[in-house]
Design a protein around this nucleic acid. Sequence first.
DNA 1: GTGAAAGCGCTAACAG
DNA 2: CTGTTAGCGCTTTCAC
Lengths: 337, 337
Amino acid sequence: MMAGPRVTLRDVARKVGVHASTVSRVLNSSTRSMVSPEIARRVDEAARDLGYRPNPIAYGLKTRRSLTVGVVIPDLTDPLFPPMIRGIDDTLARAGYTTIVANTDNDRERERVILERMRGRHVDALILGSTRREDVLDEDEVPVVLINRSIDVGGVTAVVSDNPGGIGQAIDHLASLGHRRIAHVAGPQYVSTGIARYQAYRSKMEDLGLPVTPDLVGHCESYSRGEGKRVLSLFLQSREPLTAVIAANDLLALGCYDALKAAGLRCPGDISVVGFNDMPFVDMMDPPLTTVRIPQYDIGAAAARAVLERMNEPAGGFEIIVLPSTLVVRASTAPPP
Amino acid sequence: MMAGPRVTLRDVARKVGVHASTVSRVLNSSTRSMVSPEIARRVDEAARDLGYRPNPIAYGLKTRRSLTVGVVIPDLTDPLFPPMIRGIDDTLARAGYTTIVANTDNDRERERVILERMRGRHVDALILGSTRREDVLDEDEVPVVLINRSIDVGGVTAVVSDNPGGIGQAIDHLASLGHRRIAHVAGPQYVSTGIARYQAYRSKMEDLGLPVTPDLVGHCESYSRGEGKRVLSLFLQSREPLTAVIAANDLLALGCYDALKAAGLRCPGDISVVGFNDMPFVDMMDPPLTTVRIPQYDIGAAAARAVLERMNEPAGGFEIIVLPSTLVVRASTAPPP
DNA sequence: GTGAAAGCGCTAACAG
DNA sequence: CTGTTAGCGCTTTCAC
């Protein structure tokens, strides 16, 4: 499966009969032109024969680069992230970088420790998927790009999905089915997706002339199934009647299913629900979930590309890259009873 | 979020007025006892004040260790893996190691490239979750531990779940419900889990005096929803009648749901289905899946511990660590019609 | 075009 | 106990 002793630049140099620095030049594409084609060819050959493999550690010590980028997310176990990470890793690997992922579990202290550790590891860049709106970034050491979430202050580059577009499509769909009293189970307002989707909900409802009373929205403290259940249960008990609910993400939507079941209500018979993210397997739920699909893999890939760019051009401008969202209609939505 | 210029051992040494090697000794727990408590204290203080952070790259170049372990899996996007990786990472991080994960997509060539890259990165150990039965390991360079799967030849350490136990419980459950014609949608026979569960099925069926004809088992070529559907559809069309099916894993079981739906059959009304792995969210499927739960996180943690042990004691013996499996009964199983 | 020399930040003998 | 020395494998001036 693997084999062979450690072979260094010098070994290759010795075999060809040149100096180690010459070998280095040949193997480094940017300096390769400095050396005669003939020698270059012989070096390549010797390197291949000997099974030479550059030592990234030595390279890193010399160049102060680790060829490594850190990815910080709340929890790998949240199905939203694996596809994004695949997108990141696939594109970063192609560029010669290794990705290191760490989980914060939504714990500020843990996040601090992780960032410390990443810094200790000398990552060349950071992709952050765990930021809160009020966070402020320090890009003094390494470039940073935000993924999925953004922050309130400007001067960052972030890759996010189209929240207004997605929520807009969801409401259009529900309205065309005949719904008017559409509630919103909102995400935590201290993360950008929470507030963005909430605001998109308000503005779209108003555009369509649909009622948007405070009583029609409930805020969750985290993106979890439990919170979704808790908040929708509140509606069911004491709030104004509703015929449909838009959850700020799929986990929350699943919690809504739980609440409905607990209350003896049927979905979509009594109440329609739509989610956000289209995470894996929601098409197999009972009922299959109507939700807003975001290009998870592409978001990761775009973030990786942005990070590569920023590493090459630290002075480059900031940008918010917005990827499209599209509603996927399944069986959790139907006309109101 | 992060700040400060690069501060080295020498900076700390200068500040305290000692030699760099003394600082190194203080900061290295195994050599700390060599230096006087007083100096040690002052070094600690200076290091803290200066915000000193050891450079793992330099450390690695010197010691030929990268403090890094590679984890190779088929696909991060398969819900089975994230919990395992959390278990690995949490454990390894506590020991000062960073984990790097890579996906093979079940592609032999890609796997080869990944192993190459891991080797290039000089990982200190490897955790492999992508092996096939006939693979042979070469631990010349770094220790290896297998996760979830094993291989046919001995002389490895692996952490797996109790396949016979889990399958046994599943069949007991089905039998107690009154089923006799229990089919098996087997996994790929070139991976250990595929054959282990298949053999467990045969032997348990025989033990209970239940029929186990070749017609009652179908083999899948991969662990995927599509294969599960394909194979169960075959049964439904042309094989002997059955009232229950044990799928070799949850993905396959979900494929069985698809096949049943396509055939207009009800689960569990017409046919009961049980899966394996209890991956996230199968409790929310339609119907909630009865399945064998394996301690995913613990499997990861155990593999990490094994790897740490092997790194410290390369001469240590091999062992197969088997973690318990338990059947979780939900709504996809019922008495036969 | 190519070799020599220095050094990235750290650890590990070896002296003292 | 602590300082000196050397060197991990590579890149990068600087000469030639």
